[in-house]
Design a protein around this nucleic acid. Structure first.
Length: 552
DNA sequence: TTGCAGTCAATATC
DNA sequence: GATATTGACTGCAA
């Protein structure tokens, strides 16, 4: 009731009492955290006084705070929240100190979690359920996140990694006790942190937790303790199970088996994880290059051709897009930290750059990134064309539509000049309006971009950059959409191998390897990609009237 | 509905 | 055994 009243009939700041101002301050803080530019909903006039109120706000959150050593900002890029009227960063600072408090996460988690009858004993110390900042309600962490000034995610993860390795602490332990995340997530987070401004509130939480943890002078010891406790518990368990001999072990697993009539099924409800064969991935990547946002129809076809579930194909595209996006973020960061200028590089610098750290895949990711553009090139008649025309499955699936819808990314790839309006691509409707994945930096970069198709790429490999390949316009591809019908030889045989072959013909996978990893001078490529991306966006923005809001 | 962000958790790899 | 990868899932927003 109070909220409703306040929201609908806010009093002017000047007429509010100290206490009455508090809710607005909270709202402001909340807004700042996320929007950065929050404006006092009320008549944000005097913001000065707010500052004082803020302090009061800290109190409740500070309970438990042990010391008050200010937060060592992680790193450079950290800057106070944009124009936050109130020193939100300051309040955050003090809030940050919260971490200092004894690391209760453990207990908390325990309590908080739905007491699982099964695991209690053994893992008493088990942090299973995360949630740090015990002493504080979940709200606290959220408030912290909301009010947190910009953090240098890259720097934070770097430091965390250092601390963990230096002290021989595992990601799992750290993730579960400090972040409340699983090992895989932690690994991912540490290896590919997104820039702060690209993170949602939720996504920022782990970073705030990490920052808090880093600020905690006893962080390592606490974690070490946890480690010890875990070990102890483990030994204990092991011991008991050994002494109990047989029974113990099997039970967990065997119980169901031996029992009931329909035991197995019950227990094995878990569907096995789908593991895509390299050929399948390759095919999907190629399809992605042609159309990052395939239509349902295309997806359907792809699924059929590859003998996969449509949901798998859909998921694959989702994951691939978002992962490529992340790769790009990282590149941006790295490129940035290496001195923007990259300018020096020839604008043409090509793309082929490899994705950080990862193997082929990631690289492909990037490769794919450039793909779109490449795809076009391909379309334009490259060798790929030949392959395509074979009417292979995947190809068939993807190609057809392309005629109607120009691959968005591709469009991006084609820089400025082109008139082949992106608009056109919408024919099909997919992806159109949506923000396309960050234009794969590189690819688009050179418009015509490198040919995704390795086969075709050979040369491109190195100097694709320079190659001013003629922007392959969609038109060209009219060619064989038709064939789609034909073929699909593979369909029948689920055998990956078989699929592979047909796919190969479709996408010209074979060579991939060769052409692909021509990762020459990564730094260079990186910079070039970045530059290209920027240029591309500029051009795009110029040619259209779309709003621009990018950060360089 | 569709795409995305954030995760989980099974696997792969180191 | 620890870490990295990746298909799938959940929740949210447009």
């Amino acid at each position: 009731g109070s909220v409703s009243d306040m929201l609908s009939r806010p009093k002017p700041w000047s007429k509010l009492t100290q206490k009455g101002r508090e809710p607005f301050i909270r709202m402001q803080l909340w807004l700042n955290g996320e929007l950065g530019q929050g404006v006092l909903p009320v008549q944000g006039q005097q913001q000065g006084p707010v500052l004082h109120s803020v302090t009061s706000l800290q109190d409740p959150l500070q309970q438990g705070c042990v010391s008050s050593e200010s937060t060592p900002k992680t790193s450079a890029s950290c800057s106070p929240a944009p124009e936050s009227p109130m020193s939100s960063s300051e309040s955050v600072k003090s809030l940050t100190e919260l971490v200092q408090q004894p690391c209760p996460p453990i207990e908390t988690s325990k309590d908080g979690k739905p007491p699982e009858p099964s695991d209690p004993p053994a893992s008493d110390s088990q942090p299973t359920t995360p949630l740090p900042l015990s002493g504080h309600s979940a709200l606290s962490i959220q408030e912290l996140v909301a009010m947190s000034p910009e953090l240098d995610t890259y720097g934070i993860t770097k430091r965390v990694k250092e601390v963990l390795t230096d002290n021989n602490l595992g990601q799992r332990l750290f993730g579960e006790t400090i972040l409340g995340l699983t090992q895989g997530s932690v690994s991912d987070l540490l290896a590919r942190p997104k820039p702060w401004h690209k993170l949602s509130l939720k996504g920022r939480e782990p970073f705030v937790r990490m920052q808090l943890w880093l600020n905690d002078p006893n962080n390592v010891e606490k974690l070490m303790d946890m480690k010890r406790m875990e070990k102890k518990a483990y030994m204990k368990r092991r011991h008991s199970s050994v002494s109990d001999s047989q029974p113990c072990e099997p039970p967990s697993v065997g119980i169901d088996y031996s029992q009931g009539a329909s035991p197995q099924p019950q227990h094995q409800l878990k569907k096995p994880r789908v593991v895509l064969a390299p050929e399948e991935k390759e095919a999907l990547k190629r399809a992605y290059q042609q159309k990052p946002y395939p239509s349902p129809k295309t997806i359907e076809e792809l699924a059929t051709q590859l003998n996969l579930k449509t949901s798998t194909v859909i998921n694959w595209f989702h994951n691939y897009r978002s992962r490529i996006r992340r790769e790009l973020f990282i590149e941006e960061i790295q490129a940035g930290s290496q001195g923007q200028a990259g300018a020096s590089d020839s604008p043409s610098a090509r793309s082929g750059r490899a994705a950080p750290g990862s193997e082929g895949d990631s690289c492909d990711g990037v490769e794919a990134a450039e793909g779109p553009g490449a795809a076009d090139a391909e379309e334009s008649g490259g060798p790929a064309a030949a392959a395509k025309s074979q009417g292979g499955p995947a190809e068939a699936a993807a190609a057809p539509e392309e005629q109607e819808e120009a691959p968005r990314p591709a469009e991006k790839a084609q820089p400025p000049p082109s008139g082949p309006p992106a608009a056109a691509d919408d024919a099909d409707g997919e992806g159109r309006a949506r923000a396309p994945p960050p234009p794969p930096p590189e690819g688009p970069a050179d418009g015509p971009g490198p040919v995704p198709n390795p086969a075709a790429a050979p040369a491109a490999g190195e100097d694709a950059a320079t190659s001013a390949a003629p922007p392959a316009e969609g038109p060209c591809r009219a060619r064989d959409g038709a064939d789609r019908s034909s073929a699909l030889p593979s369909t029948s045989a689920p055998a990956a191998a078989r699929r592979a072959s047909s796919l190969q013909s479709l996408f010209g996978l074979p060579e991939a390897a060769g052409a692909r990893d021509s990762r020459d001078n990564p730094l260079r490529k990186k910079k070039a990609a970045n530059l290209n991306s920027i240029i591309h966006r500029l051009e795009k923005a110029a040619s259209r009237e779309e709003p621009i809001e990018w950060e360089f």
